[in-house]
C-alpha cells in the first residue's frame, strides 16, 4: 500500500490541484403531498407497487390479504437463512424513500437482515411519511453519519430485480425479488400533524 501511495504521490508531483466544485443549488423542498405523489409515480414507473395503510396494524392485515397462503417474514423476527429461503414474502422497514427515483433506502445490521429483501420472491418495505426525501443528495446527506461512524451496509432499491442482458429485452425478475411493494403508513390528516414529531423523538 505504501509503495502504491508513493507512486501516486510521485505521479502527482507538481500537478495543478483544482478545487472541489461547489454543491449544486438545492431546489426548495416540495410539499409532503408532492413528495408522496412523485415517489409513487417513480416507484410505479420502476415496476414497483404502492400501498398505503393508516397504521402498522392495518399494514399487516393488508399484506396478509395481498399474499394469502404465503409464508410472510417480518423484519423483527430476525429470520435465519432457512426462513429466508422458504419465505414467499419478506417485509422490511424502509429508512428513507427517495421521491425523485422511487428508491427505497435501507441500512442493515446483519447479513441475514440484508437478505430479507433479496431472497423471498416478494419484497415489501414499510415506510412512514417522514421517511420521504426529495432526491438522492438528501438521502445521502442523511445516510452519511451512519457510514462515517463505522461499519454500515446500505442498499438503495429501485423496483424489483431486472435484466436486459439478452437483446436488451427488459425482463423482471432477474436474481432478486420479482415483486417489490412499498407500503406507506399515512400520517394523520393534514400531513404535518404534531404526532409526527413525537414519533421521531
Amino acid at each position: 500500500m505504501d509503495r502504491l501511495l508513493r507512486r501516486v504521490r510521485d505521479a502527482l508531483r507538481g500537478a495543478a490541484r483544482p478545487e472541489r466544485p461547489g454543491a449544486p443549488e438545492r431546489p426548495p423542498p416540495p410539499s409532503r403531498a408532492a413528495l408522496r405523489a412523485a415517489f409513487r409515480e417513480a416507484l410505479e414507473r420502476a415496476a414497483g407497487r404502492w400501498l398505503t395503510a393508516r397504521d402498522e396494524e392495518e399494514a399487516r392485515r393488508r399484506i396478509e390479504a395481498e399474499f394469502p397462503g404465503e409464508r410472510i417474514l417480518w423484519w423483527e423476527e430476525d429470520p435465519g437463512e432457512r426462513d429466508l429461503r422458504e419465505a414467499g414474502v419478506g417485509v422490511d422497514r424502509a429508512d428513507l424513500l427517495v421521491a425523485e427515483t422511487g428508491t427505497v433506502v435501507r441500512t442493515h445490521a446483519t447479513r441475514e437482515a440484508a437478505r430479507l429483501s433479496l431472497l423471498p420472491p416478494v419484497s415489501v418495505f414499510l415506510a412512514r411519511e417522514e421517511d420521504l426525501v426529495p432526491d438522492l443528495p438528501e438521502a445521502l446527506r442523511r445516510l452519511a453519519p451512519r457510514h462515517r461512524a463505522g461499519r454500515a451496509h446500505t442498499v438503495l432499491v429501485t423496483g424489483p430485480s431486472r435484466t436486459a442482458d439478452i437483446e436488451k429485452e427488459l425482463v423482471i425478475p432477474a436474481h432478486g425479488p420479482r415483486e417489490l411493494l412499498v407500503l406507506l403508513l399515512e400520517a394523520p390528516e393534514g400531513g404535518r400533524a404534531p404526532g409526527e414529531e413525537r414519533r421521531r423523538g
Binding site: 438522492l136 446500505t154 442498499v155 429501485t158 424489483p160
Partner: peptide, 30 residues
C-alpha cells in the same frame, strides 16, 4: 433513472478485502 440495486458497503458483515489496482494507472496519472 436509478439502478434497481445500489449497495454501499462500509466494511463487513464477514471478511472483506479490497484490492487496489494500479496496472498502469499511476503512469497515466503522471
Amino acid at each position: 433513472r436509478a439502478a434497481a440495486g445500489v449497495s454501499l458497503l462500509s466494511g463487513g458483515p464477514g471478511e472483506r478485502h479490497v484490492v487496489l489496482l494500479d496496472n498502469g494507472r499511476t503512469r497515466m496519472l503522471a
